[in-house]
């Protein structure tokens, strides 16, 4: 298996006036293609900072980050935008869909920034909406969709450019347990059947149970990194 992510001695220090607040104190990690990783930790543990750096949204203060073998921590902002567009799919806690915009157009959004022809955009958006089980609701705007459906649209949007990995930041934080179970089932399905690497950030241990590997952060350091022996199976297929 090839490496998707490798970080070495990754550090992030925030400056608040004269005070330096370390958020990450030297992280060393490797994530292989096809893994399903849960990044856990309480708030302030540094897991969000880690996610931002992995997602090419924020720069580390020190250390190196290779994405698929390429050092990306030092690239330009435009190069990062390109990486976020082509190689990383984001799923957020608050769904972050454009309001007053149909599900289809929301899914097409990433393709707007890399020059797909309109027909091709449409075809692929319909394809991934089918994949997440929303083929029938492509013309609905987010306010006419349930939370679970909105998160499915967001997952479709994350998938549409066939990224190397999906970064999901508390994807079930705004959902009830039944819907959470469905969404986690969808991630498992994508990981198992499509071979997509999924990195999930959560502070809920029971959500982390769906992942194959669990990494625990505390005070800016990794305190545990273990394989999940008993991956939680989805109770009802989504």
């Amino acid at each position: 298996m090839s490496e998707v992510i490798r970080v070495q001695d990754l550090q992030k220090i925030y400056r608040m006036g004269d005070v330096e607040v370390p958020a990450l104190r030297g992280i060393n990690l490797t994530i292989e293609r096809g893994e399903f990783v849960a990044v856990m930790g309480s708030s302030g543990s540094g897991k969000s900072t880690f996610m931002n750096i992995i997602g090419c949204l924020d720069r580390p203060t020190a250390g190196s980050y290779w994405l698929e073998g390429e050092e990306v921590a030092t690239l330009s902002a435009d190069a990062w935008a390109h990486i976020r567009n082509k190689r990383i799919g984001f799923v957020f806690q608050g769904f972050n869909l454009l309001s007053r915009t149909t599900a289809l157009e929301n899914v097409e959004l990433p393709m707007m920034y890399n020059g797909y022809a309109s027909k091709e955009r449409h075809r692929r958006a319909v394809e991934v909406l089918d994949l997440v089980g929303l083929g029938q609701r492509q013309d609905h705007t987010p306010n006419r969709l349930s939370g679970g459906q909105q998160q499915r649209v967001a997952i479709a949007r994350a998938l549409v450019n066939q990224p190397s990995l999906i970064l999901a930041d508390e994807p079930t934080g705004n959902l009830d347990s039944v819907t959470s179970n469905e969404i986690m089932g969808l991630f498992q399905h994508l990981n198992r059947d499509q071979g997509i690497t999924v990195i999930l950030v959560t502070h809920e241990p029971d959500i982390a149970e769906y992942a194959k590997r669990q990494i625990v952060f505390r005070d800016g350091e990794v305190i545990a990194d273990k394989a999940n022996e008993q991956v939680l199976a989805v109770r009802a297929e989504a």
């Binding site: 935008a81 972050n96 920034y113 450019n161």
Partner: peptide, 16 residues
Amino acid sequence: TREIGIRMAVGARSRD
């Protein structure tokens, strides 16, 4: 602001 954040997250450059 949020919309701008979303667009940036999915690959819009500053100049876009």
